[in-house]
Write a protein that binds this DNA or RNA. Structure first.
Ligand SMILES: NC(=O)c1ccc[n+]([C@@H]2O[C@H](COP(=O)([O-])OP(=O)(O)OC[C@H]3O[C@@H](n4cnc5c(N)ncnc54)[C@H](O)[C@@H]3O)[C@@H](O)[C@H]2O)c1
Ligand SMILES: NC(=O)c1ccc[n+]([C@@H]2O[C@H](COP(=O)([O-])OP(=O)(O)OC[C@H]3O[C@@H](n4cnc5c(N)ncnc54)[C@H](O)[C@@H]3O)[C@@H](O)[C@H]2O)c1
Lengths: 211, 211
DNA sequence: ACACATTAGTGAAATAATTCACTATTATAC
DNA sequence: GTATAATAGTGAATTATTTCACTAATGTGT
């Protein structure tokens, strides 16, 4: 952690918005933008200027009156507060359609997430894969995670195997899990867990738009 | 809409939880489970029994004392209230690694979302695709959406094209958009919009676990 | 130099969401 | 049949979050 801020006291909503802000800042930095106001940031992330200012001030970061926030300065501060400066190693379990799409997605790398291994239970599938990431049979999961100090596990196996895979990942020592299988996985409190359920997303859109 | 409930007055949080509950109920129904308590449901979706009961009662659905909710009954009620009973037609724009993974994902079909078309700007790519879904060059987007009454658009193009694609989808008449490009798209108020940003998800996990 | 407009910072107010506390009901055990 | 325990339903209390209202600072135009 950086200094002065107890990130565990900050709400999930704030952390999620700060992550979005961070993404917007990266894009702006690339475009050479120097300053950005809370109002503009709010537009980029779909929030309000009040909330953006409060979120940023919760992290103890300040801007400049009449100019807003200095883009690369704010980005560095957020990086530090959110502990995003260090590259993080991740692995993907389940190298089917979705898993292989994720495997070679370059943007993870750009954003500091390095996919250093892929796992699948099917030797056939592994042998047929054409990727520059190293892929292993699932039985090597624990050893590989420990040898390479992999901290993040991404689950892309069928729902019925997801819990089992998660248990193995946790036993091997990952600190966080991103789950793409459409099922809620149980994890101990010290493991950070997030689910991306595309079907639920479509349901939400359908419900809200009363199709 | 069903009757008696004004879905637009219900909070996003409640709708999202109800969507998750719906997913859990589908799984339970398949396993032949007959009754489920608010406590169990809370466990499945990662919430509390109080919140689950309140959410369900907001929709005007009731359970049975000492037994909980009747699984298939509750599922039918939610289906009706959330307007999930009718099959919804969707299309995918951008048939790269992610788009093609989504294209043939059978579970969408099972859950009432029918992918009826795919679009890409690259003729080469389209010709090389091996799928049972019909795929088109992007210039056919508007006509196809209108002829087939497609109501949902799924965006899987690079970030820099996402806004343009969204504008075309909206002009063609979709009611909702699910965006996988890591950029916030601006849409008019009557369009339901949801973003799935995997990088932000990883950032959240990294921040929370202080890797 | 001065007035004005813009913008961050922030405590207070308002709003929203969750949790609690309690009631009523009913299945189960004895 | 009665006691008990489990569970939904729900208004009230609590807690969390967002929005507002105001201050202070400072860049811009005249
Ligand atoms: N394909 C999509 O677009 C999509 C969309 C939404 C959700 N999902 C979810 O993502 C997950 C993967 O989907 P997919 O379409 O890639 O499926 P898939 O069947 O193409 O691939 C699954 C892979 O997991 C491997 N696997 C199965 N059990 C395993 C285990 N115990 N350990 C290691 N590997 C194992 C299989 O060999 C296979 O390669 C599923 O849970 C699915 O519901 C996929
Ligand atoms: N691959 C992943 O695992 C992954 C993960 C997270 C996010 N994403 C996001 O999803 C999107 C797609 O990723 P991908 O890896 O599949 O990329 P990709 O480059 O493999 O595919 C993009 C496809 O979009 C097509 N395309 C480009 N511009 C278009 C336009 N204007 N109209 C129609 N088609 C167009 C291209 O021809 C290509 O087929 C990107 O925004 C990416 O950031 C992908």
């Amino acid at each position: 952690m950086c200094h002065g801020v107890y990130i565990m006291d900050i709400s999930d909503n704030t952390i999620k918005r700060i992550c979005s802000i961070f993404g917007s800042l990266s894009a702006m930095e690339k475009r050479g933008v120097e300053f950005v106001s809370s109002k503009e940031l709010a537009g980029y992330i779909g929030s309000t200027e009040y909330t953006v200012r409060k979120d940023i001030s919760i992290l103890g970061v300040t801007g400049y009156t009449r100019r807003g926030y200095e883009v690369s300065g704010l980005k560095k501060e957020l990086e530090c507060k959110l502990n995003l400066s260090k590259k993080k190693k991740a692995c993907i379990v389940g190298l089917g359609r979705l898993g292989t799409a994720l495997l070679d997605y370059e943007k993870f790398q750009e954003d500091g997430f390095e996919i250093v291994a892929g796992f699948d239970c099917s030797i056939n599938r592994i042998e047929r894969l054409n990727t520059h990431i190293e892929v292993f049979q699932i039985s090597y999961l624990k050893d590989t995670i420990q040898q390479r100090s992999i901290e993040l596990g991404i689950i892309a196996v069928p729902a019925k195997s997801a819990q089992e895979v998660a248990d193995d990942l946790i036993e091997a020592g990952v600190k966080g899990i991103l789950n793409f299988a459409p099922v809620k996985i149980g994890v101990p409190k010290h493991i950070i867990y997030l689910e991306m359920d595309f079907t639920n997303a479509l349901r939400f859109i359908a419900a809200r738009s009363s199709l």
